[in-house]
Design a protein around this nucleic acid. Structure first.
Lengths: 120, 120
DNA sequence: ACAATTGTACTAATTGAGATAATACAATTA
DNA sequence: TAATTGTATTATCTCAATTAGTACAATTGT
């Protein structure tokens, strides 16, 4: 269900965050679905519970999930798959921008492209 | 000529790398142009020479520049391949923006992401 | 009522990448 | 020859990420 790359430069808690957002956007995780307990997921991924907790905390701060002591963590009831998909698409944009910048793309070039999608 | 942000999460050597690639791509640095010596640039940027050296090493490994002891570092005579890669990357950005817009992304949201790659 | 589960909070220790510091060497230039 | 240049090496420092350990409070299930 959840996969992380320990060799990646991206922090584990960030990978987990993206994992959950992706699963929601794909419809695998639906509103009110229960997420694995912090400890269980930590054990499953061979990762520290604090790391999972950090990801969950961020997900709750961004409205993707709701957590409560004793109950667990659940996908937000009001979260729409559309919103999650949009967030995912925005992540893709960010990643491709990063690539382009690495290859010498300037802010002006990127702005021009961006404008093209709102004027044209 | 070169600017870095010491507060950025992005490593200095990576910022320098992108700086050079961008200047080459923009035509400011042309083939066979001389780059600042490692020590000079390090002093100018208040940065360790090793950090500049690391950036130069990567740039040479990727074919952007040619370095030689005693002579200095110069923009590679042929950089056409890199320019082609940039164009491809820009096309990817455009495609992903299109996806995001169709999912409800606003221009403001995209601008914020774009800024993030040039400020943060 | 009780035990297990759960999210959360906290401090301390560890790890690794990035950066600095200092020095040295070899090739080139003037 | 003396200065400049890229490169290499080793050691040290810094900081975010992660681990480790413990504890607490609310909920669940029996």
């Amino acid at each position: 269900m959840f996969t992380i790359d320990l060799t990646s430069r991206k922090p584990i808690y960030e990978q987990l965050y993206n994992n959950v957002v992706r699963l929601i956007s794909a419809g695998v995780l639906k509103p009110d679905d229960k997420l694995p307990p912090v400890r269980s997921l930590a054990t499953e991924l061979s990762v520290n519970p604090n790391t999972v907790s950090k990801a969950y905390k961020l997900l709750e701060a961004d409205g993707y999930i709701c957590s409560a002591v004793g109950k667990g963590s659940f996908v937000s009831p009001d979260i729409s798959v559309q919103n999650a998909e949009k967030q995912l698409a925005l992540e893709q944009v960010s990643a491709r921008i990063k690539d382009a910048v690495s290859l010498g793309a300037t802010k002006e070039e990127l702005l021009k492209i961006l404008d093209g999608h709102f004027n044209g």
